[in-house]
């Protein structure tokens, strides 16, 4: 009955409302999205800075070591494996390109600069996102929906300091080391495919690798690794930490969606920030 009695009134109100033009609908939609993006970026920045400044506490050290083990040591295998085959493919491809121009001698240069400047930091970061970033989002998301994070608040333990800061510190330490592993193993992988399998001279290859690699290249690669590390950890932890605020799902489903979002956004941000950092470095 209540629905019947209110129906004519709401229909009348609907009729009185001016029809939206396509232009205003367009601005409504993009305006709303811009405001949401602005809010999210603001929240992300606050989340990062509050967590970052809580790294510097003695009580955080055991947690940081634990996270270095999880993000760093436990990711070595996958980084080594991917690095080795990436190097092998690079060696193979570049050999077939360079042999046409009679420039096989510069293979070592091409391999080392490609890996150290670009492919090492980017691929290592993507691999760590897939392995550790997704796990971080899922773990923190589950802690959120099972009220473990609320329990920390009630115990007067700052959840950002307890859960996020150690991960940020561990990322700052682990990402450059894993990137260095990736670069090194990639160079070895390329040596296997180019020198052992295709007959390029090993001495010439390693001479070019050493001669063409400058300290600036290594520094640039490490800067990228740190930037990617901070981005990945912040995005993944943010997605997990606010998994309960999602409006598209609840409970376990929201954790799974947050994990997917964290991986996708992290990968996209790695590529975007790679361009931005490279443009500053060059």
């Amino acid at each position: 009955m209540a629905d019947d009695s209110t129906a004519p009134a709401s229909a009348g109100a609907e009729a009185l409302r001016p029809a939206k033009s396509v232009v205003s609908a367009f601005f409504d939609f993009f305006g709303l999205k811009t405001i949401q993006l602005n809010n999210d970026l603001g929240a992300l920045a606050i989340f990062f800075f509050r967590s970052f400044f809580m790294i510097f506490r003695i009580k955080a050290i055991p947690e940081i070591l634990q996270q270095i083990y999880f993000i760093g040591a436990r990711s070595v295998q996958i980084v080594v494996l991917v690095g080795f085959f990436t190097g092998m493919v690079l060696g193979l491809q570049l050999y077939h390109v360079l042999v046409k121009f009679g420039s096989v001698g510069v293979l070592g240069t091409a391999i080392s600069l490609t890996l150290i400047r670009e492919m090492g930091p980017v691929l290592a970061a993507i691999m760590i996102t897939a392995r550790a970033g997704s796990a971080m989002t899922a773990e923190i998301g589950i802690q959120r929906i099972s009220e473990q994070i609320d329990a920390l608040t009630t115990m007067r333990i700052d959840p950002l300091g307890f859960l996020i800061s150690p991960r940020i510190a561990a990322a700052i330490i682990s990402f450059p080391i894993l990137t260095a592993f990736f670069d090194l193993i990639g160079i070895i992988g390329a040596w296997v495919s180019a020198c052992l399998l295709l007959g390029v001279n090993s001495g010439s290859y390693f001479y070019r690798v050493v001669a063409s690699t400058q300290m600036e290249d290594i520094r640039g690669g490490f800067i990228k690794a740190i930037v990617f590390g901070l981005l990945i950890v912040t995005i993944c932890c943010f997605q997990g930490f606010f998994t309960h605020m999602r409006t598209d799902s609840y409970g376990a489903k929201s954790v799974s969606l947050s994990t997917t979002s964290a991986v996708v956004i992290s990968c996209v941000m790695i590529l975007i920030s790679d361009y931005v950092v490279t443009s500053f470095l060059l």
Binding site: K59, Q143, E147, Q148, D150, A151, I157
Partner: peptide
């Protein structure tokens, strides 16, 4: 102190670590 309906124990910590947690950090 607040005791949650579903306990909200940290599942990656032992019972001892859970109980000691507030003392360790506060």
């Amino acid at each position: 102190s607040y005791m949650f309906q579903n306990n909200a124990l940290f599942d990656s910590m032992t019972v001892f670590e859970n109980v000691a947690l507030p003392l360790k950090y506060t």
